[in-house]
Design a protein around this nucleic acid. Structure first.
Lengths: 228, 228
DNA sequence: TTGCGACATTGATATAGATCAACTTTTTTA
DNA sequence: TAAAAAAGTTGATCTATATCAATGTCGCAA
């Protein structure tokens, strides 16, 4: 399953801040990137294990989730190309506070933690980029904390759909996740997720065709997502 | 209510990392600290407003909380002396993502954001301190996300009590918060908080005398807090 | 092509926790 | 010090959502 350096990763050096920065700094050699391919469903990193390298998602979608002692997971984020995994080690958390697994075949690029940290410390521009990325993920989690506690299922499903629409930058998109996972993104049961979707479809606020979703009335959907 | 520089703040320069660091760097003058006193119940900062300075809590307890559009709040943390408020501006969040208000009379010390940022950028040791503080607060929030979603009230109240016990570093402590606030810390209603407390007292796991709490059987309490 | 497993859907039922109401106790204020 | 306000407590009821159960649908491997 694992293909090393030999795999050419087309757009990684173009898109990733860390590559751009390293190149600017003439530190490109330092990175020693390792390209790793993950099959659909494969685990990219596991909550609680040591963070050994920073991973950049190059191709494919993945889910970032936390799991309690009890079986049920909460999906924090859907990761898309150019997203980082394992940032938190820079912020003094040596273990992954979340798990990530591939929703489809994923190409990733991994670099040593030390390299990341060196560039972080030596380049203020890059440091700010990373800090801001981390900062906004915190804001997102706080928002989630509120949503999951104060909104009811319709609102939470509406919010998840709007999140996905923003993520894929379109009102019409194909779900990369199952109904159960859409539930985990909103912290509700699979059954109630389906019920909420059906309801929204019957009210002609969204269109559903299997995994294909169309947001017909984002205005109303936003209003629903704001309601408690 | 506000007393400026003239107020001597006894232990701030000794305890706060930022003072120690600034002094080491010979940048003490740069800080221009302003000492501000908040009466019990007063708001120290408000969610959504611009962060203009970093605040260090010198004396007294405060609550850090997020509020949805709907009335109910969730308390994230109880702040104790030497805790920072407004760190997030360093991480690219110009607005407070939370509110803080005084649970009792609070002495604080405020310094300009620019000064904080300068020291942050110029001193790697301080940067790491701040990064780690921020990182662990993120870990704490993630933990809360799970707890509030997967545990039931007994478990959440048990967890809150253990949190307070760790915070005050004793099995016997005086609550700085009301029952309603203890509920907000666990995201449950005041009534159910009281019921859970009474239950735990009847089972002789804790002792209650008004605001005074004794954790009699932390073993069992931990087990309860782990259960889903 | 058939049958199996994962995914999706719908209805019925159970329940954790919110809310409402009434009351007591403590704290604050005038 | 009295009166008012805030905090704390307990019981009864309601409701949002989980859970259980049954069934349908789709894609894929033998």
């Amino acid at each position: 399953m694992r293909i090393e350096k030999s795999v050419k990763c087309i757009d990684c050096p173009l898109k990733c801040d860390i590559y751009l920065t390293a190149r600017e700094m003439g530190l490109e050699e330092m990175l020693e990137p390792v390209y790793i391919f993950y099959k659909k469903y494969e685990s990219i990193c596991r909550q609680g294990s040591k963070i050994k390298n920073a991973t950049i998602l190059i191709q494919g979608n993945a889910k970032m989730f936390v799991s309690g002692h009890c079986s049920r997971n909460i999906i924090l984020n859907i990761l898309i190309p150019s997203n980082y995994i394992g940032l938190t080690s820079v912020y003094g958390l040596p273990d992954y506070p979340y798990s990530v697994s591939a929703l489809e075949d994923c190409h990733t690029c991994q670099i040593e933690n030390e390299a990341l940290e060196q560039i972080y410390l030596q380049n203020q521009h890059f440091m700010k980029l990373l800090n801001h990325a981390f900062g906004s993920s915190v804001a997102a989690i706080m928002n989630k904390l509120i949503s999951l506690n104060q909104k009811q299922i319709r609102g939470r499903v509406a919010e998840s759909l709007l999140y996905l629409s923003r993520l894929y930058d379109s009102n019409s998109f194909k779900l990369s996740i199952t109904r159960r996972e859409l539930g985990e993104l909103s912290a509700i049961s699979e059954e109630n997720t389906v019920r909420a979707l059906t309801e929204l479809r019957n009210e002609e606020i969204i269109g559903i065709d299997g995994r294909n979703i169309v947001l017909k009335d984002t205005e109303t959907l936003s209003r629903i997502s704001m309601n408690c």
